[in-house]
Nucleic acid binder design. Structure first.
Ligand SMILES: [Mn+2]
Ligand SMILES: [Mn+2]
Ligand SMILES: [Zn+2]
Ligand SMILES: [Zn+2]
Lengths: 144, 144
DNA sequence: CTATTAAATAGGAATAATTCCTAATTAGGA
DNA sequence: TCCTAATTAGGAATTATTCCTATTTAATAG
């Protein structure tokens, strides 16, 4: 069962296991597409109607510090979170808010190799993420 | 003189040439490091003390629509702008807010080639930007 | 030049996202 | 079971941004 794993994640990060934190982790686990705090709040409140909004924000920030979630860089005034810790890149839709995961080990490796050789003066590279910007072509909307 | 070029930029975009717009373009031109709207406001107000804040935001959004500025993706709740239209990537400092430009045509070309071959189902790639995440090593702070 | 008018702006209120504050609760160890 | 530091609820406050509308203005035509 999943709850065991979740509470392990918390213990491993030296965080007390609380219902609020479990609820946020559950939300992160089931919400796809890089949810906002607001989406996470909605999900959490379905099962735990009296979790405070501030708690959700604080929890997300705590998780971020511990590396249990990542923040997804966007050009919008609203934060989005990513529970997928495996290295990956992102497809950004120019027309909608949609952000999709893009896994490509070959690409990741290519980039890493490139920066192994190519030193950047005064900068130590720790991570490389590609923003793949464009538009989704959902077959249906192709009939203009 | 520079003003000529700036007002040309505006005319070419079918935008009326106003002092406010000139001022924002001047600010963008001289502020480095991907300024926030707030930094731009400060700069503008030095020379034109009664430009309204809303005007600056609206102007920036207009410029964005016309492609005169770009928005820089960050994981902060504050927008940052980029007046450099030439294709480039960004160095993000993990510890500070610093974002530096990274020009590397070889890298850019490598990425473009890669995605020329590698089709992504249901997605049309229009732009590729690399987030190079790490820390700046300013020689001075190396003496711990 | 002057008149016309659609577009742009000032100034301030409103909204949205996030953070802060503090008294009450609670998880986890002794 | 008790203790205590950590966490939370609830709401106020803050920050960044957007919206509103009366007034001003840039551009164009006469
Ligand atoms: Mn905000
Ligand atoms: Mn905001
Ligand atoms: Zn992702
Ligand atoms: Zn840049």
């Amino acid at each position: 069962m999943k709850k065991e794993k979740i509470s392990m994640d918390l213990k491993n990060s030296n965080l007390k296991v609380t219902p609020q934190r479990m609820a946020v982790l559950e939300a992160l686990d089931s919400l796809k597409n890089h949810p906002t705090a607001d989406k996470i709040k909605e999900y959490v409140i379905k099962n735990h109607p009296n979790v405070a909004v501030g708690t959700i924000y604080k929890t997300l920030e705590t998780f971020f510090e511990k590396g249990l979630v990542k923040k997804v860089k966007t050009e919008k005034d609203v934060m989005r979170y990513d529970a997928i810790l495996k290295k990956h890149h992102h497809l950004y839709c120019e027309d909608t808010e949609q952000i999709e995961d893009f896994f490509d080990d070959k690409l990741t490796k290519m980039l890493e190799e490139y920066f192994k050789k190519r030193e950047i003066p005064n900068f130590q590279v720790k991570d490389l993420k590609l923003q793949i910007i464009g538009t989704f072509i959902n077959k249906k909307s192709l009939n203009k």
